[in-house]
Simulated assay, not measured.
Amino acid sequence: MEAYIILYLCSLGSSLGYLLDSQSANQNDSLILQLQQDVKKMQDEHVQTSVEMKDFALKLKEKDILIEYLLKQHLSQQDIINNMTMKSDQQDIVLRNLTAELSQQKFAKLEKEVAFLARFSQPRPSFWNRTIARNGPIIYDDITVNFGQGFNQTTGIFTTPVGGLYVFQLTSLAESYLAINLFAGGALYGTSSGLQGAQGSVQTVVRLNAGQTVLTQLAQGTGTLVGSRGYTQFSGVLLHSY
């Protein structure tokens, strides 16, 4: 009996050992499986993280490219603005120079516009009463044109404001025989003469320097001229300056 009990206990111990060994093996297998699953999950997470990092790096690179492009665009626009500003400044300089040149040309043109017309204005009934002296320039009382301000009404003398080629004309109508000389630059260039009621005239072209004088002076006769209607007048105009 005792032997039987001992045998039973040994058998029971062996079964328990087997059961314990089987349970330990199962636990180990479960633990290994769990570890494998954890490793697989970590690997998957690592792969996902790597993909996300690559996407992030790609987005950063795209942003860098965009920033570089925008920077180049800004610099290009700034260059355009600078070029436009430079061109605008150059155009302003050209415009100012052109305006100054036009002003100078206009001023020069005004300076070279030289002409005068002097005459007697005495109307009727004092038709034949314009008496002039023999020893000096004839004084005209009606200066209708005086471009360049070369004619002096007080002295009756025209002084050339600029050098150039001039044309002068003298027309006279006398009560009786009368002759009037035309002097330019100190030289006699012609005589206007006529009998009573006859109109005389003289016209000449003269090259004069600036500051030379032109005048009319009684040469012969009684010195009584017809003053109305422009019958007696003295005129001059600059044809070309130099």
Rank of each mutant, 00 (worst) to 15 (best):
T49F: 06
E175G: 02
Q149Y: 04
L238D: 03
T171L: 09
N129G: 12
Q90K: 01
R229K: 02
N129H: 10
L218I: 00
Q36I: 03
F127H: 02
T159M: 14
S88I: 05
E52A: 12
I81L: 08
K40C: 03
F120I: 06
Q43D: 12
S235V: 13
K63F: 01
V39I: 14
T160W: 05
G164C: 09
Q105N: 13
D44M: 04
R134G: 01
I180S: 00
R207T: 09
V162M: 09
L239P: 04
L7S: 15
F107W: 12
G186R: 06
Y18C: 08
I80R: 15
M86H: 11
P123D: 14
P125F: 15
L98Q: 12
L60A: 07
L117V: 06
K109Y: 14
Q153L: 04
T154D: 07
G230R: 09
S126E: 12
S121Y: 04
N152C: 11
P123C: 12
I157K: 00
V114C: 10
A219V: 01
I32W: 04
V145I: 15
L19K: 10
Y177V: 02
R134V: 01
L188V: 06
Q43M: 06
L58A: 09
V145T: 13
A174E: 06
F151K: 02
Q105T: 08
E111Q: 13
R124Y: 13
L16C: 07
G136F: 11
Q203F: 11
L178G: 00
Q122S: 12
E52V: 02
P137Y: 03
S30R: 13
D29V: 10
Y140S: 02
E175D: 14
L218T: 00
T49M: 08
F120Y: 07
L60S: 11
G185Q: 05
D44S: 15
G150T: 05
V51S: 07
H240G: 07
L218P: 00
S241N: 10
N26M: 11
G236Q: 05
F158W: 05
I5S: 05
Y4Q: 15
Q27G: 00
S192R: 08
L182K: 00
Q78P: 00
L60E: 10
L7E: 15
S50A: 07
T85L: 04
T131R: 10
G13V: 07
L95H: 04
D64Y: 10
T144Y: 05
L239A: 10
T155L: 06
Q37N: 15
K112C: 04
F127V: 09
T144V: 12
A174G: 12
I139Y: 02
L239S: 06
H74R: 08
Q36K: 08
S121V: 01
Y8F: 11
